[in-house]
Nucleic acid binder design. Sequence first.
DNA 1: GTCTATATTGAGATAGAC
DNA 2: GTCTATCTCAATATAGAC
Lengths: 200, 200
Amino acid sequence: MVAAADSPIRERRRGEILAAAGRLFAERGVRETTVRQIAEEVGVLAGSLYYHFQNKESILDGLMRPYVDALLERYRRCAERPGDARAKLQWLVETSLEAMLEHPHENAILQAELNRSFRDAHYTYLRDAVDEIERIYVAVIGTGIAAGRIRSDVEAHFLFRILMDLVKGTAFWFDPDRHQVPDLMTGWWKVLGEGVFPER
Amino acid sequence: MVAAADSPIRERRRGEILAAAGRLFAERGVRETTVRQIAEEVGVLAGSLYYHFQNKESILDGLMRPYVDALLERYRRCAERPGDARAKLQWLVETSLEAMLEHPHENAILQAELNRSFRDAHYTYLRDAVDEIERIYVAVIGTGIAAGRIRSDVEAHFLFRILMDLVKGTAFWFDPDRHQVPDLMTGWWKVLGEGVFPER
DNA sequence: GTCTATATTGAGATAGAC
DNA sequence: GTCTATCTCAATATAGAC
C-alpha cells in the first residue's frame, strides 16, 4: 500500500482544466468564457471544477503564474549570456517569439487582458513581469546604442515598442501549420535588420 | 414657433452617451463596461440611456458604424489617388495612423474586440470592413512589388501584417501629449524604410 | 471526484410616474 | 427626457448526495 503521493490523477485533471481554460480564454476572452464552457470542454459539470480550483480567478492564475515565471527566467538568461548587445537583442526577440509559439494561449491572454482583467490589483504580479521584460529589453538596446551597434537616432523605448508590437501582433495571425518560425524571423530581420543595425 | 427639427438637444445627449461609451469601452472593454457606468459618466441614471438607444449593442453600433464607414472611404481614396505604389503605401500607413489618432477609442475597440464581441454575426459589417482594408493594402503592395518599387523577397500579406501590427500596437502606447505624429512616422520609416523600399 | 440542486449576485432591460 | 422601481436572466459559486 503506497501513500497517495499527491494523486497524479488529480494533477492530470487539473492540467486538463487549465488546458481547456487556456484555449477558451485565449480564443474568446476571459470575461466571455464561462466556467460552464470550461467544464464542458473538459467533459465534466461546472460544479466539479470547484473541487480542483477555488474559483475562476485561480484557474486564470494557475495558467498565468507559471507562464510568466518561466518567461522572466528566460529573458534574464538572455541578457546575462555572454555576447554583444546586437546578439542579445536578437536572442530577446527570439525568446519572445518562442514563448509565443510554445504557449500561444497564455501569451494571447496576457496581451489581450492587460488592459482588462489584469488591471485589477490581484494581477500586479503580471504587470510587474511585463515591466521587468521592458526594462531588460531597454537596457540591452541602450547598451547597443552606446556601443554604436544599434541605430542611435531612434529612442530605446521606441525601438522596444516596435519590436514588441511586432511580436504581439504576430500572435494574432501566426498559424504554426501554415507559417515557419525561421521564415518569420528571416522576414522580420529583412525588413528591420538594416533599419535597426547600422553598417550591415 | 419653430418645428422641433430633430431636436438638437436630443442629438447632443446622444453624442455624449456615445463619447462616454467610447471612452469606457476602449479603456476597459465592451463586456467589462456596464450600462450603469456609461450612464454615470454621462450624469444620468441607467434607465435613461434606453430613451436614446435600444440597447447596449446599439450604442456600440452607433460608435463603430460611422467610424468604419469613414475609414473605408479614406482607404479607398488613398488607393485611387494618382501616384506610384510606394507613395500609396505610405498614404495608407498614414491613414491608418491618422484614423488611430483622430478616433483612438473606436480604433482601440475595433482591435480589441475583433476576437471577442465582434465575432458575433451581428458585427459582420465590421469584419467585412477589416477584410476590405486588407485587400486594399495587399493590392497596393502587390503592385509595388510587381513594379520593383517594393521589396520582392517578402510576401505582400506578410508586409501588410507587419505594418498593421505596428499601427495596432501603437494604439496601446501612443500618447498624443507625449508623442508627436511626425516623429512616429519618421521613426517607422527609419527602421522600416530601407527594409521595405529597396535602392534608397 | 463528480453530480444535482440551489443560493447569490450582477447586469441588461422595461414600465410607468414625473 | 429622466427617474424609480423592478423584472429577468445569466453566471459564479456552494452544499450535500452519491
